[in-house]
Amino acid sequence: MSASLVGVVAGLALLDALNPATIGLVALILLLPTESTGPSATARRGSPVALGAGVAVGAALTVFAVGCAVYLAADTAAVAGGLVWVRRLAFGAAGVVLLVTALRRLRPRDVSAVALPGWFSVWTAVPTGVLVTGADLPNAFPYFIAIERMAAAGIGVGAATLLLAGYAVVYCLPCLVLLGVGQRWGDRVRGGLSGLYRRFGAARRLPRSVPLAAAYGAGAVALIAVAASA
């Protein structure tokens, strides 16, 4: 396992860590004391730190477990000479996601408000982290590129397991940092998050945006071209 491979995987993990799904969920958790119906509702759910930690644990377990399964499949494909198809799948899936996003920006649409479900509590935080992260993984092309790089390097299952464990930790770092900052500077952080929520999380109507659609479309074409030439 070379230092360059570790650096590549770490860089991809940092890029993947900036995903809006898990970070947004932790941000909603930090808003609970001000956005919920009162202290009694917060008490029923649990403390924000416990809830956020549960989500982070669920996210890390999902990233690690799915990564191990995908790596074993990719490693088998590499031995069988089919690694090129793993590479094409990683870049092709990312291109399709960007293409769908581009098409959606070509027409206005209504976006519902983002809110935590009533059943969300300290007992369901870990499963919620698993579900949210699992649903977001198909869009996480750095994740699959990292696994493809590990399989191409032929580092073996033991080393790959260590790298995937590190990837899972890095993936959750922004959530853990946000939780720590929220715990230390609660009111100030919640004030900033409330402003972001009103802008990005509240119910709103998204207008069509040709420039954004063109940008997403260009990215999709580039990734699909890479997949085709892999």
Rank of each mutant, 00 (worst) to 15 (best):
P20V: 04
A43V: 14
V130R: 04
L98N: 04
A115L: 13
L103K: 01
L137I: 06
V49F: 15
G81R: 12
A140H: 03
V57W: 01
G82A: 09
D110P: 06
P48C: 05
A78Y: 03
A94M: 10
V97H: 03
V55D: 04
L116R: 04
I23D: 00
T34K: 11
V49K: 11
A77T: 04
A135D: 07
V55K: 00
V55E: 10
R104G: 03
A21P: 05
V26Q: 04
W85L: 03
A80M: 06
T37I: 02
G67N: 06
G81F: 10
S47K: 13
L61N: 05
V9S: 09
Y71E: 09
T34S: 15
V49S: 10
R88W: 01
A80R: 07
A65P: 09
G38K: 00
D110M: 12
P108I: 06
V86T: 05
V63F: 05
R45E: 03
P33E: 09
T42H: 05
F64S: 08
T22V: 15
A50I: 02
A13L: 01
T22S: 11
W119L: 08
L30C: 07
T34M: 09
D16K: 14
L12H: 01
R87Q: 12
C68P: 06
A90T: 08
L98R: 08
V114K: 15
A73H: 11
V57P: 00
A90V: 00
A77I: 07
T22W: 10
F120L: 15
F141I: 04
P33G: 00
T76Q: 15
L103D: 06
R88A: 06
V122G: 03
G95V: 10
F91Q: 12
L30I: 09
V26K: 01
A27S: 13
R45L: 04
G46H: 06
A135F: 08
L131M: 06
G52F: 11
R45S: 00
S36E: 01
T128G: 01
A56W: 10
R44Y: 13
P127E: 14
W85E: 01
A41D: 08
I29N: 07
T133P: 05
T124D: 07
L72H: 10
L98S: 10
V66S: 14
G58E: 10
V111G: 07
T128M: 08
L15M: 12
L99G: 08
R105C: 13
V84Q: 01
A113S: 15
S36G: 05
A43F: 09
V111A: 11
T101N: 06
T62K: 09
G95D: 03
V66A: 12
L106S: 00
Y71M: 00
G38N: 11
T133I: 15
D75E: 13
F120S: 04
S47R: 14
V111R: 08
G82S: 05
D75Y: 04
V96S: 01
V9F: 00
E35H: 15
G54A: 03
S47G: 09
V100M: 13
E35C: 00
A78L: 05
W119I: 06
L25D: 04
I29Y: 12
